[in-house]
Nucleic acid binder design. Structure first.
Length: 108
DNA sequence: GACATGACCCGCG
DNA sequence: CCGCGGGCCATGT
């Protein structure tokens, strides 16, 4: 078992994630574009590990279609339910389709 | 260095 | 509207 220290790429992801103001959200694609990555999937990889939780508000990162996405390695389940709860607590509520309003998305 | 995995995205039918 | 397949990037084995 090797030590998996956070890479520079992951640090950029965490840094950008921390910049998201409360009550707002962002998407993997926007995050990827900000840190200079053409793939949002790599961003998700870094967040799923999220060794800095809850220091890093990864729950504010949603998919491009503004759906929840995943949380702690799960795309559905208790952790996801918790994620929705945290967002609602910050003023970000989901509609009947599990999506948030476009104007709640924070663009860099 | 090659193969497999993933909290994704986009286009097509 | 739904499902399928390909593409992209970084990580871990």
């Amino acid at each position: 078992m090797e030590k998996r220290e956070p890479t520079e790429f992951e640090q950029r992801v965490y840094d950008a994630t921390c910049r998201i103001p409360k009550g707002k959200v962002t998407t993997y694609k926007l995050l990827a574009a900000e840190i200079g990555c053409g793939s949002s999937q790599a961003v998700g990889q870094a967040l799923k590990r999220n060794p800095f939780a809850p220091e890093v508000p990864c729950h504010r990162v949603l998919r491009t279609d503004l759906s929840i996405g995943g949380f702690y390695g799960q795309t559905q389940g208790r952790e996801i339910l918790r994620k929705k709860k945290m967002l609602a607590d910050e003023g970000v509520e989901l509609d009947g389709h599990g999506r948030v309003a476009r104007d709640l998305v924070f663009e860099y």
